[in-house]
Simulated scan of single mutants.
Amino acid sequence: MYTMILLVYLQQNLDVSLDQARLRGEYLRQADCEAAARKLRGPVPIPANYAAAWQDVMCVKVANNVRVNEAAPLDLARALQAHAPLRCQAEGAWERLAAQCRPSETNGAAGEKAARR
Score class of each variant (00 low, 15 high):
residue 75 D to N: 15
residue 70 E to Q: 10
residue 95 E to H: 08
residue 111 G to L: 12
residue 77 A to G: 05
residue 46 I to W: 06
residue 27 Y to T: 05
residue 55 Q to K: 04
residue 12 Q to P: 00
residue 74 L to K: 05
residue 61 K to C: 06
residue 9 Y to A: 06
residue 6 L to K: 12
residue 73 P to I: 04
residue 66 V to I: 05
residue 22 R to A: 06
residue 48 A to S: 14
residue 63 A to K: 10
residue 40 L to G: 10
residue 21 A to F: 00
residue 11 Q to H: 08
residue 24 R to S: 14
residue 60 V to W: 04
residue 8 V to H: 14
residue 104 S to P: 06
residue 58 M to H: 01
residue 74 L to R: 09
residue 20 Q to N: 13
residue 76 L to R: 00
residue 104 S to H: 10
residue 2 Y to C: 01
residue 106 T to F: 00
residue 26 E to L: 14
residue 31 A to F: 02
residue 38 R to W: 01
residue 11 Q to W: 13
residue 65 N to W: 15
residue 50 Y to M: 08
residue 68 V to D: 00
residue 62 V to I: 15
residue 80 L to F: 00
residue 57 V to Q: 01
residue 106 T to A: 10
residue 56 D to P: 02
residue 55 Q to V: 08
residue 62 V to L: 06
residue 39 K to F: 13
residue 97 L to F: 12
residue 67 R to E: 05
residue 42 G to T: 06
residue 13 N to Q: 11
residue 79 A to N: 01
residue 23 L to F: 12
residue 83 H to E: 09
residue 86 L to F: 02
residue 84 A to P: 15
residue 65 N to G: 11
residue 25 G to C: 06
residue 43 P to F: 08
residue 96 R to H: 14
residue 23 L to K: 04
residue 113 K to V: 11
residue 82 A to H: 10
residue 65 N to D: 13
residue 64 N to G: 13
residue 34 E to G: 02
residue 86 L to A: 02
residue 72 A to V: 04
residue 113 K to T: 13
residue 82 A to R: 11
residue 3 T to L: 02
residue 31 A to H: 13
residue 29 R to W: 10
residue 3 T to E: 07
residue 70 E to G: 07
residue 43 P to I: 10
residue 25 G to L: 02
residue 21 A to L: 01
residue 12 Q to G: 08
residue 63 A to G: 15
residue 27 Y to P: 07
residue 111 G to S: 12
residue 1 M to Q: 09
residue 108 G to D: 08
residue 36 A to Q: 13
residue 115 A to S: 09
residue 114 A to Q: 13
residue 29 R to H: 12
residue 45 P to R: 11
residue 72 A to W: 03
residue 99 A to D: 09
residue 15 D to L: 14
residue 92 G to R: 08
residue 6 L to Y: 09
residue 13 N to W: 12
residue 87 R to T: 04
residue 112 E to R: 15
residue 73 P to E: 02
residue 76 L to N: 00
residue 21 A to W: 06
residue 66 V to C: 00
residue 46 I to Q: 14
residue 90 A to T: 02
residue 70 E to M: 03
residue 11 Q to E: 07
residue 91 E to K: 08
residue 106 T to K: 10
residue 61 K to W: 12
residue 107 N to M: 13
residue 64 N to R: 13
residue 14 L to P: 00
residue 100 Q to V: 01
residue 14 L to A: 13
residue 55 Q to S: 08
residue 79 A to G: 03
residue 59 C to H: 01
residue 59 C to N: 03
residue 16 V to K: 04
residue 15 D to R: 09
residue 3 T to M: 07
residue 60 V to Y: 05
residue 29 R to C: 06
residue 101 C to H: 01
residue 35 A to N: 07
residue 75 D to Q: 03
residue 16 V to C: 02
residue 36 A to T: 04
residue 117 R to N: 12
residue 105 E to A: 11
residue 21 A to V: 08
residue 30 Q to C: 11
residue 8 V to F: 06
